[in-house]
């Protein structure tokens, strides 16, 4: 590993730690009575690997499981926590709460918690780019789950993007679960990429817990889109290490499967990789982890001190 590769991985590792600390804190706040959140614990490498392959000019759409995407894109944890707690300093002034956080200043332009909503909107965002609204050469990336691939709108979006040659990167975080249903109860094992290929879209399927694999697949997909303007499809095979949301006890999850994927925790894998390359000793690891937790503690304090929205603003912003 070259020195610059090590530095890149180390920076990515810091982001993974920050996301993990954020998600764990959100679970803890929910245990204490704050709203439910859908945590991306176990899927952090997908967010960081892909978003690191994008540029500031690119646009992103996401869904209900968005904290990792937001932080990977540089969102301030302060404003994420404020949003989840429904306070005015949140990215959406508390109106969104955890489920629909958009941060347009970061290029995270639309977030839908209606499963498949993000897929329905992404072709339009890419169409606007293609028609000159946006920075030249910019592309759109849409994050969605394996469950969203079951909605009819998935096929409608893929067909249109292929037909109209839209600069759109489809990123399916296949975390094996669709709320309380295992995906193998809803689709054939290799269905997702086969469906994408059926629409004539170039596809890669990689280990979503291996950040290097994700990053390199994303880089090549992004380069291809910028070169020929056609959509690309990434399936990231990963695992939702926690329940669907909040305090879900995962009683319905197969224990062996969970154990297997815990042993493949993306943070664990990257830490091992960095240690082997001599880029991360125990002391540095402890320091990084401490930094992440401190940052999150500050964010929570900020959010808890942030005011509630004024009830008089209830009907503002409904219409233009």
């Amino acid at each position: 590993m070259t020195e610059s590769q090590t530095q890149t991985l180390l920076r990515q590792f810091e982001t993974l730690l920050l996301i993990r600390a954020c998600e764990e804190q959100l679970v803890e706040l929910n245990r204490q009575g704050a709203p439910d959140t859908c945590s991306s614990i176990g899927q952090e490498a997908c967010a960081v690997g892909v978003i690191d392959a994008l540029e500031a000019r690119d646009r992103i759409l996401t869904n209900h499981r968005s904290a990792a995407h937001l932080i990977a894109r540089g969102a301030e944890p302060e404003r994420i926590f404020a949003e989840v707690l429904g306070r005015i300093d949140g990215y959406c002034g508390g109106r969104s709460g955890t489920l629909h956080i958009a941060a347009r200043e970061l290029g995270i332009v639309l977030t839908s918690t209606i499963v498949g909503g993000e897929l329905s909107l992404a072709p339009g965002v890419a169409l606007a780019q293609k028609m000159g609204h946006g920075d030249p050469g910019a592309i759109t990336a849409v994050f969605f789950g394996d469950g969203a691939a079951c909605e009819g709108i998935f096929h409608e979006a893929l067909n249109l993007a292929a037909l109209w040659q839209l600069p759109l990167l489809f990123v399916c975080e296949n975390n094996q679960w669709q709320a309380y249903v295992h995906r193998l109860e809803t689709m054939a094992d290799a269905a997702i990429t086969a469906w994408a290929e059926g629409h004539g879209i170039a596809t890669q399927s990689v280990d979503g817990n291996d950040i290097e694999a994700v990053h390199s697949a994303a880089k090549s997909a992004v380069a291809a889109i910028r070169a020929d303007g056609r959509p690309q499809f990434l399936e990231l095979r990963t695992y939702r290490l926690r329940g669907h949301s909040g305090q879900d006890d995962q009683a319905y999850v197969n224990a062996d499967e969970l154990r297997y994927w815990r042993s493949r925790d993306p943070l664990l894998l990257l830490r091992q990789r960095l240690s082997e390359a001599g880029g991360l000793d125990a002391h540095t690891f402890a320091a990084l982890q401490h930094d992440a937790h401190t940052r999150i503690e500050q964010a929570v304090a900020f959010a808890q001190a942030s005011p509630w929205p004024d009830a008089a603003s209830l009907t503002e912003q409904v219409y233009a």
């Binding site: 429904g86 508390g94 109106r95 709460g97 509630w308 009830a311 209830l314 009907t315």
Partner: peptide, 16 residues
């Protein structure tokens, strides 16, 4: 309730 989508914030949700 008002002619507005439901907000998530407890303060606004209850006000509706």
């Amino acid at each position: 309730g008002p002619d507005a989508p439901a907000a998530s914030s407890w303060a606004l949700e209850q006000a509706a």
